[in-house]
């Protein structure tokens, strides 16, 4: 029972941001939107952390990789940032 209580404390339902707002586009030309979904080191944040749905996460990963290719986002971020 103690475990259950503990779990309830940490439970927080995450909502996919792109499902919540259809105006928010996933586009490699908008690195500022994509920046929310990468770590300071430049890694793509897993959906278990960000709460993005599977469909949007796939799309997001593709667009982040495109943005990396044309140097809008880093492959390896600067950890001093």
């Amino acid at each position: 029972m103690a475990v259950m209580n503990k779990r309830r404390f940490f439970h927080r339902r995450k909502v996919c941001r792109f499902c919540a707002d259809s105006k928010l586009r996933i586009d490699y030309k908008e690195p500022n939107t994509l920046k929310y979904f990468i770590t300071e080191r430049g890694k793509i944040i897993p959906r278990r952390i960000s709460g993005t749905c599977a469909r949007h996460q796939r799309h997001l990963a593709l667009e982040i990789k495109r943005a990396r290719k044309i140097a809008l986002l880093p492959y390896v971020g600067n950890y001093e940032q």
Binding site: R12, R13, K14, V15, R17, A20, D21, K23, L24, T33
Partner: peptide, 14 residues
């Protein structure tokens, strides 16, 4: 809108 959604999402979450 992006900022709004984060706020909304948080509200929803809570």
């Amino acid at each position: 809108a992006a900022k709004e959604t984060t706020e909304e999402a948080e509200a929803h979450a809570s």
